[in-house]
């Protein structure tokens, strides 16, 4: 799953990678269509805003409020953490600022962060292996991978990176159990 060609910096991962368990192979069909967000469907935009470091607190509050309308239980906090990790990553490594989009489809919620930084070096791709307890970093993006149901990382040809995380919401007409 992490063996896409080096030239095409586009990877699709599903959560089974993060857990290091089930061999992948099915994520593209589910993941790339939805994550690309280009295939018709009933998309509803929830957030689209620029951010920098001083906005992190408010950004988390906003994402939490919107996520709580489609997710339940600890998945709301999962999405808030995902958003903050992606935004922090753009602030710290992607030029100090970025744009966050949050949107829903009938069965999922997506969080996408775009920055104008140097792009993701291959070494910075979310590690599939969990960082060791004594490791100095790498946990933020690993947690994003672990808590999302699918994740893509795209480097723009002109520089900059776009990271999109998805959490499934199931059929919202019936209450979700968890």
């Amino acid at each position: 799953m992490m063996t896409n060609s080096a030239r095409d910096d586009h990877r699709i991962l599903d959560s089974s990678d993060a857990n290091g368990s089930a061999p992948g192979g099915s994520s593209d069909a589910n993941g790339s269509m939805g994550l690309a967000g280009s295939a018709g469907g009933a998309e509803i935009d929830l957030i689209s805003e620029e951010f920098e470091e001083r906005n992190l607190h408010g950004l988390r509050q906003t994402v939490t409020a919107h996520a709580a309308t489609v997710l339940t239980g600890d998945r709301v906090a999962d999405m808030a953490l995902i958003a903050i990790e992606l935004a922090s990553n753009a602030i710290r490594h992607g030029g100090g600022r970025g744009r966050l989009r949050l949107w829903t489809t009938p069965d999922a919620i997506y969080c996408q962060v775009t920055d104008d930084g140097p792009g993701f070096p291959t070494s910075k791709y979310p590690a599939v292996r969990r960082p060791e307890p004594s490791a100095s970093g790498g946990r933020g993006l690993w947690l994003v991978l672990h808590f999302s149901d699918a994740l893509t990382v795209d480097n723009d040809v002109d520089g900059g990176a776009t990271v999109t995380a998805m959490i499934t919401t199931g059929d919202r007409r019936s209450p979700r159990k968890s």
Partner: peptide
């Protein structure tokens, strides 16, 4: 709330 970096600081202390 704590982010992954902070969880990391605590992990390293525990390790």
């Amino acid at each position: 709330f704590m982010d992954g970096s902070i969880a990391g600081v605590i992990m390293q202390a525990a390790a």
